[in-house]
Design a protein around this nucleic acid. Structure first.
Lengths: 147, 147
DNA sequence: ACGATATAGTTTGATATCGAATTACAAGGA
DNA sequence: TCCTTGTAATTCGATATCAAACTATATCGT
């Protein structure tokens, strides 16, 4: 019995994620990891402040995971955290100037790999694949929240 | 500036991998993890014996990672390891009867989630997405081996 | 007002993963 | 034979991740 096609797709996705993450982190300066970059990029793209909880939701990770990533970013001086004036349980996270610089260096560092991907696979193929991936991600997210 | 489409695709793939792995491991009996299942499934599908090195190549992980996963599978009695008679550095790994049973229970445990995926997304969409994913995986694998 | 419940964040313990260093053995060359 | 180089596997230290347990604060119901 062959593996169901959904299983084969998930398997390929797992390997791609693994290889892609390794490629990214090898190219990074500042010892920046992919999850750390994604947080910095989120702040540069959308601006403002966020709670750890909102970041965890946006990145689809648990709050525990986000706590860990934010602690490492704070240790590098790439983010700041201030207590929320209206809710004693909460925090406001923002990117620092140092963090913005690190994010921009990261963009530069990965641009060569991204270009190679566009050349080899074709930008059109990425565009074509995106709707399926979004639909699959939304399905899995819904299913997670059901239990 | 929007993120390049290849970056958005890699980002979706990362989230899908994360959500899919969590869904899988929640459904698993025997505390089986996804990497552990993949090794067992490999043996059931293809039979025979393998070296840790060959398994690491097949799963696209480092030998260090495979050492760790094999140690946990051996601790559960799901695989056996015997020294190679002709090469003192090497080992021969095989699945045990207990391992085969665990793999079959795992298949059962995940079948409901897989069915839901096929129903929601459509089997045809998975078939259509597979060639792109294979191409992307092969590109990243080649690129890794170049450095 | 108070007790029950919910929410924000952290901590802990486990697994996976990488790269780098290490150990043990193999193969080849002088 | 011995030395160098190569290969198989493991160990180590770091990061990410989850679930579960925990702390602290907020909100809701009576």
């Amino acid at each position: 019995m062959p593996d169901p096609v959904a299983f084969r797709v998930m398997n390929e996705i797992g390997i791609i994620d693994q290889l892609g993450t390794t490629m990214f982190e090898r190219a990074m300066p500042d010892g920046l990891t992919l999850p750390q970059f994604i947080v910095l990029n989120h702040f540069v793209r959308l601006g403002g402040e966020r709670t750890p909880n909102a970041l965890a939701d946006a990145m689809q990770v648990t709050r525990a995971t986000m706590t860990s990533t934010l602690q490492r970013l704070a240790a590098k001086g790439f983010i700041s955290a201030t207590p929320d004036a209206h809710d004693g349980r909460s925090k406001r996270i923002a990117i620092t100037a140092l963090g913005t610089e690190a994010r921009n260096r990261a963009i530069q560092a990965i641009s060569h790999d991204l270009s190679a991907m566009h050349e080899d696979i074709g930008t059109a193929a990425f565009e074509a694949a995106l709707p399926f991936l979004v639909q699959l991600r939304i399905f899995l997210d819904k299913r997670r929240n059901l239990g």
